[in-house]
Design a protein around this nucleic acid. Sequence first.
DNA 1: GTAGTGGCTTGAACTAGATTAAGAAATTGA
DNA 2: TCAATTTCTTAATCTAGTTCAAGCCACTAC
Lengths: 192, 192
Amino acid sequence: MTPHSNQILFHIRKNISPTPEEEQFFVSLLNPLKLRQGEFAEIAGEVTYNFIHVTSGCLMTYYTNKQGTDQVIQFATAGWWTGDLHSLTSQQPSIYTTRALADSEILQLPKVRMEELLERYPKFERYFRIMFQNSLVTHQNRIIEAFTATAEERYHNFQKKYPQMEQYVPLKYIASYLGITPEFLSKIRRKK
Amino acid sequence: MTPHSNQILFHIRKNISPTPEEEQFFVSLLNPLKLRQGEFAEIAGEVTYNFIHVTSGCLMTYYTNKQGTDQVIQFATAGWWTGDLHSLTSQQPSIYTTRALADSEILQLPKVRMEELLERYPKFERYFRIMFQNSLVTHQNRIIEAFTATAEERYHNFQKKYPQMEQYVPLKYIASYLGITPEFLSKIRRKK
DNA sequence: GTAGTGGCTTGAACTAGATTAAGAAATTGA
DNA sequence: TCAATTTCTTAATCTAGTTCAAGCCACTAC
C-alpha cells in the first residue's frame, strides 16, 4: 500500500465500506506515476484509456479539433479524478490529451482494470456511480454558465473556484478554459 | 407491471440481470404519470426530487436565473432519463423546471425511492453508474460544442441529433437550448 | 366580425468578443 | 551575456450575435 493511495482510499471509505481484501485488490490495479511539468499522463507507447486520480499537483485535459486548436475541458487538482470518458465508453481512440501543469503524482486506473474491479467487486459500482453523479452536476453547471454568463463573469467565477490556479497556470490555458482568446482575457484582467 | 415499465425494464436487463423479485420491487417504486402538453413533471404540492424516465412524448428541462430568463438545458424524448441532479445531490431546492412539450407518459423515481432501491438491491448501482457515465459523455460533448462551434454549426448539429424535434417544439426553446436569441435563430434558418 | 394573444420574422443600431499585428516582459539556452 | 522563443499586453479593426422595435400570421375569444 503506497503512501500515494491513502488519499484515494479515504474517499472510497467515505462512500463504501470495502474489506481489507477489496482495498488491496483495488490498490493493486492502480498504476502510480510521477509526472514532471508538461508531461503527458498516458503510459508511453501503450494505447490504453485511463482514469486518472490526481494525488498532488495539477493536470489539465484538453481537446484538439480538426483545425488544430485546443480547447481546455478541465483542470484537475489534488483529490480529483480526470480522464477520457468518451473513449472509455465508445472504444474510439482518445480525442483528449491530459498533461501536467505542475509536477504531479497521479494514479492511473486503466479501463480494463476498472472493468476487472467492477466484475470482481461490484461494491465499487457505488463509488463510481457517486463520482459520475457529482461530476455530472459540475458539468451541468458549466453548461449553464457557458450559455448564460459573460466572459467576465465566467472569469470571476473561475477565480473563486480555483483561487490559486492563476498563479501557476499559463493564462492562455485559462482563456481556453473560459472559451475566450488570451487577448480578451488580458482586457478583462486590466479592468480590475 | 404496467405496460409503461416494459421499455425501461428492457434497458435495465441489458445492463444488469435482475431477478423477477428485484424487477418487481423496482417497478413498484416508479410513479407512472400522464402529462398533457405544457404540464410540469413534478408531483403537485409535493416538494420532492425525481428522476424522470420518458416513456413517450417529449420533455424539456430548463433553468431560470435571477433575471428571470430561462435557459433550456436538455430535451428528453422517449427512452431518456432526465431530472434534477443538482438538487438530488445537494439537498437544495430545485433550480430546474421540467415540462412536457407534447403529451407524454413518464415514470417518476423520487429521490428517496432511488435510495431505497440502491440500499436494498445494490445491483442497481451498476445501472445508474452506466447511465451517469453515458450522460457525462453527452455533457462533455455539449461543453466542447458550446465553446468551439458557431451558432450555425450548433443549429445544424441539433437538427441531426433531433431530426423531428423542430416540428413540434417552439423555436424559442430551440434557440434557448442553442444559447442564442430567437431572432438570430430566425436569421440562421432563413439562410438555408 | 375584430380585438386580443403568442410565435415567428425582418431590419437597423449596437456590443461583446475575435482577429490581426505589434511590442513588452519573462524564460530558456548556448 | 545576448539571442531566441514563449507569454502577456495593447490597440485598431472587424464580425457574430444581441437588442429594440415593428410587422406578420395563426389561433382563440368575445
